[in-house]
Design a protein around this nucleic acid. Sequence first.
DNA 1: CCATATTTACGATTTAATTCGTATAATAAA
DNA 2: TTTATTATACGAATTAAATCGTAAATATGG
Lengths: 127, 127
Amino acid sequence: MAQPKNVKPTESELEILQVLWSKESATVREVHEELAASKDVGYTTTLKLMQIMHDKGLVSRDDSSKTHIYKAIVSREKTQKHLLGKMINTLFAGSPAQLVMQALGNHKTSKDELNEIQNLLNTLKKQ
Amino acid sequence: MAQPKNVKPTESELEILQVLWSKESATVREVHEELAASKDVGYTTTLKLMQIMHDKGLVSRDDSSKTHIYKAIVSREKTQKHLLGKMINTLFAGSPAQLVMQALGNHKTSKDELNEIQNLLNTLKKQ
DNA sequence: CCATATTTACGATTTAATTCGTATAATAAA
DNA sequence: TTTATTATACGAATTAAATCGTAAATATGG
């Protein structure tokens, strides 16, 4: 598979993508270290998952040297957009505003972040 | 299982919960009709899923008459809160604000809804 | 009452996700 | 060069989700 059309990573794949997004590129070992820090999992499991992700076209792989180097192909934003849209539909009756209310109401947000949101809100209101 | 501790419905279970939340209570037949409207699925599949959900404690069942009547036990809000929190962690690096920006930026929102969000924002800013 | 329709129960299959053991190749260290 | 370490490849087992067929029980219409 070449290009990613269906951006639908599984739970475990998302964990790996998280690491790849934060690092730009990484080896299986590096990804695994991060995962193993918070989760009990074997090295070959991480390896296998990353191989599958490569087959699916979720990540690219440079295998010019023995230790392969992986990068995320699917972008964080695209994935966010897709999964968020899905959640809005299946859990918030299609209303992004409801989701926003729930997110702001239940989670701590800093002044700076609130201001950022305010700016976006101002822009949207003008349209 | 009696009380729902782990609020982690699967994809299909969420679809069924959506119907139950919107109706307050419903039979398998009623739920199935709704699902079948937008999806190709057999009656016994819906039945089986609802039985499993009952085993898991996601729904309650009144089986005093032949046709059983189901209600959601897990609340919409609790489920939203749980899954949203999870998404914020696994996909938005723990930042609810990022999620909000993404949601507002990518999805149409009405003036009324924007005002609602503005009100909440005002409240939060004062704290 | 009899035939038809509806419902639940239950088991089995299929598909996908996750996990890991073992073999083999490549590299590094001694 | 031999030994130990580190990688990948691959197959297989496990688990969970989703799907549906069939049988039995119950209700309904004629």
